[in-house]
Amino acid sequence: MRIDIISCVPRLLDSYFDHSILKRAKEAGHAQVIIHDLRDYSENKHRQVDDYAFGGGAGMVLGIEPIAKCIRHLQSFRIYDEILYMTPDGDVFDQRTANRLSMTKNLIILCGHYKGIDERVREHFITKEVSIGDYVLSGGELPAAVVSDAIIRLIPGVLNDETSALTDSFQDNLLAPPVYTRPAEFEGLKVPEILLSGHEKKINDWRLEQSIKRTQERRPDLLK
């Protein structure tokens, strides 16, 4: 998989992809993440990529020219399955969407900034608008990192145990069950005996029961 992220503040993303699972995924060749500085596509001598909104109002808007130039440049090398735009008014990102996107080959993620982007970009270049929640951030860089993380960890070979991703919360509309590790007892607090039994079927049944119980208590909306 290849993910191209377009940002006007690309250094915000540098460290996120250089550690832990995402770093190993890149080093093993399972995924490429290339971050593009939108200012490199500006024709303004000051590398400006934003301007005032027509009609007035507070805030600056990312212009269509550098964005179109960057996207067209990337498209000249490969076909992209989706061009995502990170925006609070997009479709809320969930595990089902992550699963679908993990099956694609090439993605572009455009990070918004300031007051957003010229509407013509959304109308003519973007194939899917994505939100990570009903709140506003300073830019789309963190959401782009979140989406990339959720997608890449699903690619076969990225996790040491490929079944790990299949048992994550939301994969089957259930929250994950509680988990424990050593020691089996700490200050009188004990791990449930069933998990120490070695009986695989009983353990799996217990985990399913706990998942249903936890979902009913914390996210009953998922069971609908």
Rank of each mutant, 00 (worst) to 15 (best):
I3P: 00
I6Y: 02
S7Y: 00
S7I: 00
V9Y: 12
S20G: 13
S20K: 06
A28L: 12
A28H: 09
Q32L: 08
H36M: 12
L38H: 03
R39G: 01
K45Q: 14
Q48W: 10
Y52Q: 14
G55C: 06
G55I: 04
G56H: 04
G57K: 01
L62R: 03
K69F: 13
Q75K: 09
R78N: 09
D81K: 10
L84K: 11
G90H: 00
D91C: 08
Q95K: 03
R96C: 11
T97N: 08
N99P: 11
S102R: 01
K105F: 10
N106C: 02
L107G: 09
I108F: 00
I109Q: 15
H113T: 08
K115T: 12
D118P: 09
E119K: 07
F125T: 07
T127G: 01
E129T: 00
G133N: 08
G140Q: 06
P143Y: 06
E162I: 10
T163A: 15
S164F: 05
T167G: 11
D168Q: 08
D168G: 09
Q171T: 03
P177C: 05
A184V: 07
G188R: 12
L189N: 09
G198C: 13
G198I: 11
R207G: 06
E209C: 14
Q210H: 12
R214Q: 04
E217V: 05
R219G: 09
L223G: 12
L223H: 06
K224T: 09
